[in-house]
């Protein structure tokens, strides 16, 4: 089977995935999107692949490439629609709400004045997030009106038009950690906690990952969350609310896992590669069938 992996830099995760795919006998090509262009009228070069795995760090590149490659009729993992839903916190929240999956309360405003009113009505603290962003960047805990006014003014004045969508999330008084469930092919495979003295618990911000038993509740929430955004592969971030229990916070479509293999004892890249081959095998079989019918 022939598989392409999109990237814009080969980190440890991408290397692990390439190795796992090759170990399983796949013919894999790493394609650097910084050096790639697409002919919208001719996708022949891409149709040689049974599956395209997106591992680009750049959301813009990921979405651009997968949207076009899917038009060529080639299956992407994750699909572009899933990347769209996961990468935009507002769209993720809408899907979680639609699927009745427990999640923190979210308020949305498109002007700083309306955002301030919503925050005041809810009460402090709240968490202000950009709708699109990762690794905890520009995520701020707002403790009082002074901070709210300053942050909202800075975002609306200095930020891009996208920063003009104010995503205000209730603050969950979590116990110094958040939880992450890895879901591959609809099945929860591992869980970790991420601990930090800082209120932000992204490993990109220095939080430490620890293995966590995959309880039925974690597995169920993770699997339902991944399903509601149509992900083949996803990392579901959860918060432990003292009053309401586990709440799904965010869904990551192109997860990092280098620190979660030894801590969980689960060969995450191997399981992702196995799932990729299952999808590629189904695609390849379907194509052969279609070819035979022509």
């Amino acid at each position: 089977m022939r598989i392409a992996m999109l990237h814009n830099r080969l980190r440890i995760e991408e290397e692990m995935l390439l190795d796992a795919l090759e170990d399983l006998g796949a013919e894999v090509v790493a394609i650097d999107l910084r050096r790639t262009s697409f002919d919208l009228m001719n996708g022949e070069d891409w149709r040689q692949y049974d599956l395209v795995i997106d591992r680009s760090l750049s959301l813009t590149s990921s979405l651009t490439a997968t949207r076009i490659i899917e038009v060529y009729g080639v299956r992407c993992m994750n699909p572009s629609h899933s990347i769209e839903l996961c990468s935009d916190k507002l769209r993720t929240s809408i899907e979680l709400e639609r699927a009745a999956i427990p999640t923190p309360r979210v308020m949305i405003a498109t002007s700083p004045e309306a955002a301030l009113t919503a925050i005041e009505e809810h009460g402090y603290p709240v968490v202000l997030k950009p709708t699109i962003g990762s690794w905890g960047r520009l995520v701020a805990r707002v403790n009082d009106r002074d901070a709210a006014e300053a942050l909202l003014e800075h975002r609306s004045t200095l930020g891009s038009a996208q920063q003009g969508v104010f995503y205000i999330q209730e603050h969950i008084d979590k116990p110094g950690r958040d939880l992450r469930v890895f879901v591959v092919g609809g099945e929860a495979i591992a869980a970790i906690s991420r601990s930090s003295d800082h209120w932000l618990t992204n490993t990109a911000r220095g939080a430490e990952a620890h293995g966590l038993p995959l309880t039925p509740e974690l597995a169920d929430l993770g699997q339902r969350a991944a399903a509601c955004v149509g992900s083949d592969v996803a990392a579901i971030d959860l918060l432990e609310c003292p009053q309401r229990g586990l709440l799904v916070n965010e869904i990551n479509h192109s997860m990092e896992f280098r620190n979660s293999i030894s801590t969980t004892g689960v060969e995450i890249p191997r399981l992702i590669a196995e799932h990729a081959l299952r999808i590629a095998g189904a695609t390849s079989g379907k194509r052969r069938q279609e070819g035979a019918l022509v």
């Binding site: 830099r9 750049s58 997860m255 990092e256």
Partner: peptide
């Protein structure tokens, strides 16, 4: 030198 992290990079 590897490129610097850009605004739309992430998980």
């Amino acid at each position: 030198l590897a490129p610097e992290v850009e605004e739309d990079w992430g998980e």
